[in-house]
Amino acid sequence: MPTLKINGRRVTVDADATILDAVRAAGVEVPTLCHFDGLEPWGGCRLCVVDMSQAGWEDDWFKVVTACNHPVDEGMTVVTDSERIIETRRVVLDLLLARCPEAPLIQELARDYGIEETSYTPNPEPDDCILCGLCTRVCDHIGVSAISSADRGWGREIAPPFHKPPPDCIGCLACAEICPTDCIPYETSNIRRTIWGKEFEMLRDPKTGEAVITKEQAEHFAERSGVPITYFETSDTSKRRQMASTFQKLQVVK
């Protein structure tokens, strides 16, 4: 298990850990925007940059790397708050603020780094999407891939195919939930759910009538897990009630 030095403090982590894991294990905070534990790291936002020096490198030799996708190594030295790192993050946030001048999360992060207003020309058509790719990656992760990044450069955006309701979408809302700037709109009620312009009917618990899941999502899970579809239409309330009645039937033998 490799041992690293993070801001002067020693930590030992698993061999397959990333620098971000090690930094967190050392109790140090590094801001991230495109990272989500459990999803393959992507290294897209560049906010998690740190200074890193490998064992055997000259003492003052440091390289700027993204912590979220860089593997650890024995004897690595990491500095998370050097002047050039703070400056690099400031540039990233300045640019993000120009793109998304109205996104509260970006405003807040920028403020943490002393930026009240972007020094670049703010986007004349403000959009809260920072193109972190979390939504498309989570959708890939669950095996659906209903949405993707489209176009390039200035025009790049997250969109369903042909900007029409995505035929593959199962209405699970994972993309909307994971979005750090909450910029994927949806509506959900006891009967219907709409996301990406696609409408879904909700499956309801046969006993309580609560909406639990969309039919498409239940089918997707049932097919992949082999668990009968009825399992997915049981609400938490129903599950608790079932458990309570099971416990009532149990006889405690003293």
């Binding site: 209903a146 993707s148 390039r152 195919p161």
Partner: peptide, 27 residues
Amino acid sequence: PCDVLERVAEALDVPLAKVFSVSTFYK
């Protein structure tokens, strides 16, 4: 044409969203 892209996605077993992404990426 979009119906051709749909057919390509199906034939290659690549999600339509990925085919759309590639199709819009290149000028």
